[in-house]
């Protein structure tokens, strides 16, 4: 077991990671790492292994070989500990529909034994632009975007140093996507480490410091933003399209 604690250089690491499910190889020798304050986007088509990578970081998939580390701790050896350091945002935020946005946030915070005042909760809602009148409505009346905002507010309130985002902008309107991308950048600026998986080339280029191109569970290319610049969308798009075409 590697355990360098908070002194680890990389907060997220996949080392020669292989994952097989039902005798099918999902991830093959996947290696990448994400440093503190960095936004890393794993880009790939359907079935490339993006969500499986996130699930492995969350401990829901067991590596058949290789390892995944969070803040220096091997995930499957300190599951509860590493999960407490991560804020996971699934494609469809799975919160409780019978609870209001505020009740959801309060409930999850109480489970994490985190105490927040109502004004702090309202600040988080304001930060994700969740309207005032929606905060005390049950989630069953919410759109997907509003549910995502609630989940992000929760993640912010949890003060987790690591964010794992699974297709976070899927199904959101363009304004909400822009708001979300700005928020991710803001989180990274404040020191959060973000690993997002997406098939949205444009969105990935907008927010990521680095992009890894995933195909059939293998990392087939990486792109890195230059100082104060964004990654070239056309370059990534061309590589992505080429890979997709070659797959066909």
């Amino acid at each position: 077991m590697t355990n360098s604690g908070s002194s680890a250089k990389y907060l997220l690491e996949a080392k020669s990671l292989c994952v097989s499910i039902d005798n099918k190889n999902i991830l093959s020798s996947l290696s990448f790492s994400v440093a503190k304050g960095e936004v890393y986007a794993l880009l790939g088509g359907n079935g490339a292994g993006k969500s499986s990578t996130l699930k492995t970081f969350l401990g829901f998939n067991l590596p058949s070989s290789g390892k995944v580390l969070i803040d220096g701790d091997e995930v499957n050896e300190s599951l509860d500990k590493v999960r407490r350091k991560t804020a996971y945002l699934p494609e469809n935020a799975t919160l409780y529909p019978h609870l209001t946005a505020r009740e959801n946030v309060e409930y999850f915070l109480s489970l994490a034994e985190i105490s927040k005042s109502q004004s702090e909760i309202d600040k988080a809602f304001e930060r994700v632009s969740l309207q005032n009148d929606a905060r005390d409505k049950q989630l069953q009346t919410f759109s997907k975007g509003m549910r995502q905002k609630t989940a992000i507010a929760l993640a912010i309130l949890r003060n987790a140093p690591i964010f794992l985002l699974d297709e976070p902008t899927s199904g959101l309107d363009p304004v909400a996507i822009d708001e979300f991308n700005n928020l991710v950048r803001e989180l990274a600026t404040s020191g959060a480490t973000v690993l997002m998986v997406t098939h949205d080339v444009y969105g990935a280029c907008q927010v990521a410091n680095r992009i890894g191109l995933l195909r059939h569970g293998e990392l087939v290319g990486q792109f890195e933003a230059k100082q104060n610049e964004k990654i070239d969308t056309e370059l990534v798009h061309a590589a992505f399209a080429q890979r997709q075409t070659s797959e066909v």
Partner: peptide, 14 residues
């Protein structure tokens, strides 16, 4: 069924 279980576990709830 509502997938809140995995979300709960992912937040570190045992």
């Amino acid at each position: 069924e509502s997938q809140t279980l995995a979300f709960l576990l992912a937040q570190g709830t045992s």
